[in-house]
């Protein structure tokens, strides 16, 4: 379980997140909505442990461990992973090597890359000259290899063409154990109940909702978690009234 209590975060002296309370139970996937600059990426970076995001108040607990001030690698080892929107290029490090790093050499990089239609990129330097859509596939590939318990997705659909959207959506659903699996030995209900993977997905377009049956939607507005509810309902609401609607609740 991820539990965020009363969290206040600053970046270079500026308050970005205020009074955040968020709880993601094992097996749950949450969707994070919000206008540009509302603090969505900052929340993900704070959960991942980027030190420039200074926690001024509150607490982050993961699997019962207080990780509020833990370094990034400790969180990664504890089971938190992230799919970045704009990851840096690592010159000279091949994607194949990166997959080995993520999986601690326990994954078949080629098989995995094939599943994401990304085989031809294994010998390329990580993210070097990748297009928007290629970055997303590369990120998913790395996350798949890392296989963390809590997966943070920062706009996994941005820059992805229509052709690859289904691939991305289905892969995320699989990663989060949200894809329908027919397993003869277990009932589908049992499969759902056995789900442990947690997800937090930032989306602007809402496309991801077509593939991932999310459990809860949250709206982040000016650093405050303004609204929570059924993700599709929230998305519809935003589509009709825009984020202006949030003002009604927060002022």
């Amino acid at each position: 379980m991820l539990l965020i209590e009363d969290l206040q975060v600053e970046l270079e002296g500026k308050v970005l997140l205020k009074d955040i309370h968020l709880e993601i139970l094992p097996g749950e996937t949450h969707i994070l909505f919000g206008p540009n600059g509302s603090g969505k990426t900052s929340l993900l970076m704070t959960i991942m442990g980027y030190p420039q995001y200074a926690v001024k108040r509150g607490k982050i607990t993961f699997k019962g461990v207080d990780i509020t001030h833990a370094p990034i690698d400790e969180r990664a080892r504890l089971g938190i992973g992230m799919s970045y929107q704009r990851p840096p290029t690592i010159n000279g490090l091949k994607l194949r090597q990166m997959i080995d790093i993520c999986a601690k050499k326990h994954a078949d990089a080629e098989e995995m890359a094939k599943s994401l239609n990304f085989f031809d990129f294994l010998e390329r330097d990580v993210n070097a000259g990748f297009s928007g859509g290629e970055i997303k596939r590369s990120e998913l590939l790395q996350l798949k290899a890392q296989n963390p318990d809590l997966m943070l997705f920062d706009e996994p659909e941005s820059g992805v063409d229509i052709e690859n959207m289904a691939l991305i959506g289905k892969t995320i659903a699989q990663l989060l154990q949200k894809a329908p699996v027919k397993d003869g030995s277990k009932s589908m209900l049992q499969t759902r109940q056995d789900r442990t993977r947690m997800g937090l997905v930032i989306t602007h377009t809402g496309y991801i909702l077509d593939y991932v049956p999310a459990d809860k939607g949250q709206v982040l507005y000016e650093g405050i978690l303004a609204c929570a509810g059924n993700p599709r309902e929230i998305f519809q609401c935003i589509a009709i009234s825009g984020y202006e609607e949030c003002l009604k609740c927060n002022l």
């Binding site: 991942m48 690698d73 990664a76 992973g81 992230m82 790093i101």
Partner: peptide, 10 residues
């Protein structure tokens, strides 16, 4: 940080 988030130490 990117590599640390993939599980490597600093």
């Amino acid at each position: 940080y990117y590599l640390m988030s993939r599980g490597l130490s600093e």
